[in-house]
């Protein structure tokens, strides 16, 4: 209902001349801008490269995040060793890494994927490490007293206990991944939705700006829905 209402209000505002068209394009204008880009064959390229960067960076960041969270969350010694450093790194506003990554890796694919990975890493690492640290000690002792140890204990108690935390951290990480993607592409790219934003702004193509923003919203929602489906499946099995 609300999206329809927004669309109607948008259309009314755009056609009422209250706001000039260089400030607010009409819905039809945005649609045509999309069709235009599509017919030139670049729309798909922008979407594909951005999605690829997000999925790659998200996967790498999530895997590294889960691995480090497991180490820090399960071993008190590793926690003492790594946790303060990681907390300090986390305190750095993440976009501060962009120039450094640019210098080290170059303003290419790898640096953008790396930036997305950094964005996805921290929510997963922080949430899952803390969840593992806070698994009910009583349940762990219970498992031990019934003869479970090592990986058997891990899969009996700790892993199922943190499944909800893992899923919610993945959702958060995905949102972060899109955020970092746009940031990375804004700051230097020749292709991708972030680049399309900058390019449209510089050329005064407000219709394309609107188009890109809507596309980012739709893509973010689509990937979030995918994780949401995974969530529903896993919580049915492991939820309480």
């Amino acid at each position: 209902m609300i999206p329809v209402a927004i669309l109607v209000i948008w259309q009314v505002l755009a056609s009422s001349n209250l706001i000039p068209s260089y400030r607010l394009p009409s819905p039809a204008g945005v649609w045509l801008a999309g069709v235009d880009l599509y017919e030139r064959g670049v729309l798909y390229q922008h979407i594909a490269i951005s999605t690829q960067r997000v999925l790659l960076g998200f996967t790498i960041g999530a895997i590294v995040g889960l691995a480090l969270a497991a180490v820090v969350g399960l071993s008190a010694r590793a926690s003492d060793l790594f946790a303060p450093t990681l907390a300090a790194i986390r305190a750095v506003p993440s976009l501060a890494w962009v120039p450094l990554l640019g210098l080290y890796i170059g303003l290419n694919e790898d640096s953008k994927v790396a930036l997305v990975a950094i964005g996805a890493f921290f929510p997963v690492y922080t949430t899952v490490a803390s969840a593992l640290r806070h698994v009910d000690a009583h349940l762990v002792e219970l498992g031990r007293s019934y003869g479970y140890s090592g990986t058997a204990l891990l899969s009996l108690v700790q892993l199922p206990a943190v499944v909800p935390a893992v899923i919610s951290s993945l959702r958060l990480a995905l949102a972060q991944a899109w955020l970092f993607l746009v940031a990375g592409e804004l700051l230097g790219a020749s292709l991708g939705l972030g680049f399309l934003l900058v390019d449209s702004q510089q050329n005064g193509r407000i219709d394309r700006l609107f188009l890109t923003i809507i596309l980012l919203g739709v893509l973010g929602k689509l990937t979030d829905t995918a994780v949401g489906l995974l969530e529903r499946f896993l919580l049915k099995r492991w939820g309480s």
Binding site: H138, L139, E141, L142, S145, L156, V157, P160, A161, V163, R237, W238, G239, S240
Partner: peptide, 11 residues
């Protein structure tokens, strides 16, 4: 051992 809390695995 059975503990004071039932200590059941909620999932």
């Amino acid at each position: 051992v059975a503990f004071q809390e039932p200590r059941l695995l909620p999932w």
